[in-house]
Simulated assay, not measured.
Amino acid sequence: MSLPAEHANDASSKEESATKTGISPRYMVALFGGMTGALAVFCLGLLGLSTTDNLPPPAFSNSLCVDEKLSFLRERPVTSPNLLVVGSSVAWRHFDGAAIVNHDPSARPLNGAFCGLHANQSAYVANWLLDREPTIKQVLMIVDPQDFAGCWKIPNEVFNRDDADQYVYGQASRWGYYMRYFSPGSLVRNSLSVKDQRANRIEFDPLVFDRFGDGPLMTENSRGLLYGRPEPLDQTCFDALTALSERLHQEGRSLTVVSTPLHPDWKAQQDPTGTFLADFDRRLVSALASTNAQYWNGDKEWTATPTAFIDAIHLRWSAAQDFSAALAKQLYLAKASNDDRHEERLASTTP
């Protein structure tokens, strides 16, 4: 039985149109079906990883330790913090909030340090948290020389602030961010280790946080010096510190910068004359000179033996606790000094 002429013409016209565009209806159905199937498999995979605690956080920065810290800030917020800690891994690993509170019960520390940051990136994170946490009165930045090299080639933005705001402070659903920051390679790679890191089963790279956001390195072992010759210091890094210092000064908040202890063997090998570290010390002081920020050279003024370190720059937790106890005294002095300056300003403006 033959089709009516008009139906045959319509079918012929559709075939000709499909031929001209190069896309057939069957191809489109297969394409969208495949996309829907892939999305379903992806979502089921995320649910499966979540059920077994193998699901990494959304890849806001594509750095597992940074993204996991954002998840900590979301899930275990510190209420009304008045002391903010910023910096790279030495600030995250070397600060013990409990030691600070023991020395000053009025302190409410928030460790907002992230691993692997350069000084310009630490300033970016500090500005974000200062905007979100108005109760912060005192900022502590713990640094090492590696933080102040190569800032010129590293973007300031560690993550998108708007997305971090919604995720951390807005409690937005996490699932959409797995699509927005779709990175299957890092998702698979991180899913193989994140459960063990969270359980402190990866000795030198745990993702364990205490109630303040500190990241203890609880190991009795060491991994050698690990770090070689430091890169040249970059003025861009010090400029970022100056800008942060000036902001805090204008807002009446105090800043204390602390250079972390360094392994004595590493210093003997890489800076035998002390010239490099003396220049680092001088440039930190210079970067803070336009404000009332305090600087404490923890490398010079706090004695650390080789057994205190797991590598050239990282302290094991027992040593970090002792270092924090000494640091608490410096913070107390800085706080008292800032309070005195505040009272002087009030007195000078009172009729």
Rank of each mutant, 00 (worst) to 15 (best):
H7C: 08
A8T: 13
A11I: 12
S17R: 14
K20Q: 07
I23K: 06
S24T: 13
R26T: 12
V29Q: 12
G34M: 12
M35R: 04
P56N: 03
A59D: 05
A59C: 04
S63T: 00
C65F: 14
S88I: 03
F95M: 05
H103C: 01
D104Y: 01
R108Q: 08
L110V: 00
L110A: 02
N111R: 02
G112Q: 12
F114P: 02
C115D: 09
C115G: 11
D131W: 05
T135R: 06
I136L: 09
K137R: 12
D144P: 04
F148I: 09
A149H: 02
A149C: 07
W152G: 14
E157Y: 05
F159I: 01
D162W: 04
D163N: 12
D163L: 06
Q166M: 04
V168A: 02
S173A: 13
R174W: 12
Y181S: 07
S183D: 15
A199N: 06
F209Y: 11
N221S: 13
Q235P: 12
A240P: 01
A240F: 03
L241Y: 00
A243V: 14
A243L: 14
H249I: 04
H249P: 08
H249L: 10
H249W: 09
G252D: 11
L255D: 12
L255F: 05
S259K: 06
P272V: 03
P272Y: 06
L277Y: 07
D279M: 09
D281W: 00
L284W: 05
L284K: 05
L288H: 07
T291S: 09
Q294I: 04
D299E: 09
T307H: 10
I310Y: 14
A312K: 02
I313F: 13
I313L: 11
Q321D: 04
Q321E: 10
S324V: 05
A328S: 15
A336E: 08
R345I: 10
T350A: 11
